[in-house]
Design a protein around this nucleic acid. Structure first.
Lengths: 91, 91
DNA sequence: TTGACATGCAAGCGGACACTTGCCTATTGT
DNA sequence: ACAATAGGCAAGTGTCCGCTTGCATGTCAA
């Protein structure tokens, strides 16, 4: 179900990755690592970021496009729209 | 931070508790257990539900009102509204 | 008062999770 | 061709999480 989506956004580093990709779509892994370290102050290694991206991908939040030795990452926030309207806004 | 909120809704049982309380606010622990088992098909024990409620409470999603030997639970979905608009809806 | 009821508290256990480490593959530049 | 670059794969590790178990506390009915 959408359990993977909730689990995906449960981690702060993964949310930062989403933030970063929303602001600038189509980044490579190295770009992501650099910008995460710079703007968000995160010290995640390349492998750690790679595994986080894999989680986001299996949740349908990130898609991957291979071109040569680069791997570009693209966001798709539509799975988040469904969960945004799950609980009504009463009072 | 709002990290506790994301962590709180990361668990399926806790989301079911929120659903149940939104549909019917002010339930006791036993009511919650019964209705979770009935409608949602969950087999969580009383202690398990109690601990889940504690997590939801520390996330500001549930408040507790004591009256005699009963403990009524109330929902507050406003912390979820903030996270609902975190990522814009760009297609 | 006494016992049943509704809940709280705390320790322990197994599994999931985030991260590291080490090695491997493929692509690009010189 | 060779080295540097960009990334993947897999095993191991420490920590957190969800749950159980056992007992303690407080409240109501008879």
């Amino acid at each position: 179900m959408d359990d993977v989506v909730f689990k995906a956004i449960a981690d702060g580093t993964r949310r930062a990755i989403l933030d970063e990709l929303v602001e600038r779509d189509g980044q490579t892994l190295f770009e992501l690592c650099a910008r995460l370290a710079g703007k968000h102050g995160l010290t995640s290694s390349r492998q750690a970021v790679s595994q986080h991206v894999a989680v986001l991908e299996s949740a349908g939040l990130v898609s991957v496009r291979r071109a040569g030795r680069y791997t570009f990452h693209h966001v798709d926030t539509s799975p988040l729209a469904a969960i945004a309207e799950r609980w009504p806004h009463r009072k």
